[in-house]
Write a protein that binds this DNA or RNA. Sequence first.
DNA 1: TTCAAAACCTGACATTTGTCATAGTATCCC
DNA 2: GGGATACTATGACAAATGTCAGGTTTTGAA
Lengths: 229, 229
Amino acid sequence: MESRCENCIIRQFNSLRAMSKEELKQVSDSKTTKTVKKGEPIFEEGDKLNGVYCVRNGISKLSKLSANGKDQIVKLASKGEVLGQRSVVSQETTNLSAIAVNDMEVCFIPKESINNTLQKNPNFTLEVLRHMAHDLKEADDVIVNISQKTVKQRMAEAFLYLQNNFGEDADGFLALTLSREDISNVVGTATESAIRIISEFKKMGLIHTSGKKIAIKDERKLLEMVEGF
Amino acid sequence: MESRCENCIIRQFNSLRAMSKEELKQVSDSKTTKTVKKGEPIFEEGDKLNGVYCVRNGISKLSKLSANGKDQIVKLASKGEVLGQRSVVSQETTNLSAIAVNDMEVCFIPKESINNTLQKNPNFTLEVLRHMAHDLKEADDVIVNISQKTVKQRMAEAFLYLQNNFGEDADGFLALTLSREDISNVVGTATESAIRIISEFKKMGLIHTSGKKIAIKDERKLLEMVEGF
DNA sequence: TTCAAAACCTGACATTTGTCATAGTATCCC
DNA sequence: GGGATACTATGACAAATGTCAGGTTTTGAA
């Protein structure tokens, strides 16, 4: 189960690819691998992180608790993504919780290895910077979406997002199955509203469902809905 | 009016302080200063930026146009902030427009100077990274606020934000005077709703106004309102 | 397998928020 | 200084969304 970072395919997807052989070796020697069961936290809002987590398998939701007790899911992270980077870089406690949506396998990399490389290898730092720039752009998009689109439009968008980013299973259902509550927390609405809109989309023939699994039937109409008819 | 970056106080507030003497000299030699009148754009959504803009004076709103034709203001930038960093770093077109809220003076720094330093000076890169990490955290907070708080709560929060970040003038009015429309675009609501809530806050004795100027009368109650009573 | 807990779903209703219409007020430019 | 233009303000109404309450179904653990 333990393996060397140097040989890890996952690395190709994230900033770690900019590390030198020696740096990778050091990371590999200091990393630990652990499994996280569905529903369990990798870390929680307010934690002081001693390193970052590289996702090898499974999906994690990054969320933030609001005053009224509801979670807002800010991002869904899958294979290859590095969690906790922001916190380690800025040396602050995390502003987000990371909770496993399904069973996960993650590598913990102590912050010393990261900070060391950040100070010495400009290519690595630049790579991390580019990733963060990308995340920031996405966050801006989310802000505009939430504030300017209706719940119905955001629901449609969420389904398309899930399809584009996590694909479909053999039967055409979205490969990532979220609870209705999680869906509502991605979209930023009440669970009941999310459920109601799912029903409505079914009646309109845009999607169909089987248990909590959802399949997209009419992608074009969903797209039109996102744009506002 | 033109002056050397090496002597510029503004620099102390942003990532440029991590530059070496030689790098600063190069920046200073290649930079140009320009004034931007109230309401004019520094750059617009979709532009390909050839450099970054360092704010010397005035305030700029960073906004994004939504499908329904309304702007969402994502950030207000003042003296010392560097605009366009994200875009230059990720080598993509900007996702935001920067428009002057009042008369401004900005320095344009060609991207070559920046990229050059990014590749050679890890301290500078790390400094930029830290700034971006901070912006990302703020963006996450905005997402949660917009999706979980009522318009009234967000309005209260906006006034407190304006007070904390831009201060008050001699008469106790918020130093940064925004139009009602700009306020509604910060909060993410209809202009009419923003105006209505301003009227309501006045009746409740939380604020008072004079023309478009707004003064906070009862900070504590505003804070309670943000938290949800 | 069974039973309790959790998740899903729907209806009824209240509240919030947006939209449209219209009028007053400030501001800018000639 | 005056008129066009943009901004502020308010009412009336419709639409969107949240809340509460009650059911049904699914899930998971004993």
